[in-house]
Write a protein that binds this DNA or RNA. Structure first.
Lengths: 249, 249
DNA sequence: CCGCGACGGTTACACTATGTTACCAAAAAG
DNA sequence: CTTTTTGGTAACATAGTGTAACCGTCGCGG
């Protein structure tokens, strides 16, 4: 998997086993200031979706040993992320388009990059237009080590039930950690998942946020228990995160 | 202009000066239970749009004496109605520009009717998916954190049942928040949803409205609980909004 | 065991976004 | 037409966040 470090109008995940097409799309979109992540199969796709903040998926229908249609349905079943399918130009195309697999748009290979861009923009435009009314918000609350994190109302409570005063950025960071427990997150991932932005070489802003966050949630100042540093790797949230309130001990 | 009065999956407006193509499309779609209206130029198109409830427009880019691209752009500027363009096979540029102008798909002439049908279905399906979420009728009374917001009557009651005196703009803003709970709304969105206008770069009027609204509905003046600011993002209404009066505590 | 280099934690500071007060113009009320 | 209310702009106060710099610590090789 390769990830380009570009800020811009969105982060696009390209799922295609064809190196050449990947490179082509990647270069083209990067030039247009999109952030691009390239993967070659369904497994990598799922991983990338967990690791990055993806705005749109471009999915090849023909992946070796996999069913693109099924991938698309799975994806749609679990999220509302926009999908553009790449299909082979043939008579089959029409039938595929007719299938209700839930993609937002389709494009036959070989294609003109400008057309891809136009369709990307169109899909993102439609999504944006509908973003207002669409959002069905479930009250998501996460629990860990006695703490309670209410994501929807952006509030965080300590084990003794007191509201903890976190700044917006600190809260976002904590949410990302709680949603990715027990795995190492690089600074770049953290930056992407919190701000949707990519980092320059010497960006230490995440370190600062970590430091400030720790000051407010770590009991022991010298031995962090919730957010552990992984030297050379990033940070890892060590606690067990549950979606339900633990039974009182 | 000729209109076929058939009930069915949708009402399609075909804009093409070529009699033969019109007839072809018309017959084909009518056979599939679509309602079809055929017109030959931009003027008739606008009239038809005013007279009927059109679900989708099929627009020929090559109309005598008119610019199909311009028509497409005008259409898109005024509504979100789905558009499928008909283009000449050789003019790839036109197709792309069309997509950039806001068309939802295109089809090169000459085309296979089945292909047209597939694309019509695909486009309508996309729109329908979106529309479902959009078109729920909004309840006129909302409850949150003990407060009661009667949208129709434009009255707002505090937890102790007293009428709160809000100005018109403050009320509008509160309604927007209550209808989009637990999600971050940018200043631009707020301005658009309240006044239907877009903002200049340094517009702080929303900040003022927020400040004034907070003064009237926030208990703690220093730590807002209902309207939380998201630095760099906008504001978020944190409360759980219910359509029904909560059971008495 | 010591020293070096890289990495990460922290402090200080600059900058930017936001909150708020004061003031004024436009709109509504009378 | 006068009074009142509302909403917007300007200006200042304040909190949040990124950058730079300094230092401590960890790993590693000598």
């Amino acid at each position: 998997m390769s990830t380009a470090k570009t800020k811009g109008p969105g982060h696009i995940l390209v799922v295609d086993d064809d190196r050449e097409i990947c490179t082509l799309i990647g270069k083209f979109l990067k030039k247009r200031d999109y952030r691009v992540t390239l993967v070659g199969n369904g497994h990598e796709m799922r991983r990338a979706l967990g690791e990055w903040s993806i705005d749109l998926v471009i999915l090849d229908l023909m992946l070796p040993g996999e069913d693109g249609l099924q991938l698309c349905r799975d994806l749609r079943a679990r999220s509302t992320i926009p999908i553009i399918m790449l299909t082979v130009m043939s008579e089959e195309t029409d039938r595929i388009i007719g299938l209700e697999m839930g993609a937002d748009d389709y494009l036959a290979k070989p294609f003109n990059p400008r057309e891809l861009l136009a369709r990307i923009k169109a899909v993102l435009r439609r999504v944006k237009t509908n973003a207002d009314a669409t959002s069905q918000t479930r009250p998501r609350t996460l629990y860990f080590s006695g703490w309670r994190l209410e994501i929807g109302r952006r509030q965080f409570f300590s084990p003794n039930g007191l509201l903890v005063d976190l700044s917006g950025g600190e809260f976002d960071l904590l949410v990302v950690f709680a949603e990715h427990p027990q795995q190492v997150l690089t600074r770049e991932q953290l930056l992407d998942l919190t701000h949707g932005r990519s980092q320059g070489a010497f960006d230490r802003s995440i370190d600062m946020q970590i430091s400030r966050l720790r000051r407010k949630i770590e009991i022991s100042h010298s031995a962090p228990e919730l957010i552990m540093t992984v030297r050379g790797g990033g940070y890892s949230f060590t606690s067990n995160v549950s979606q339900h309130e633990p039974s009182d001990p």
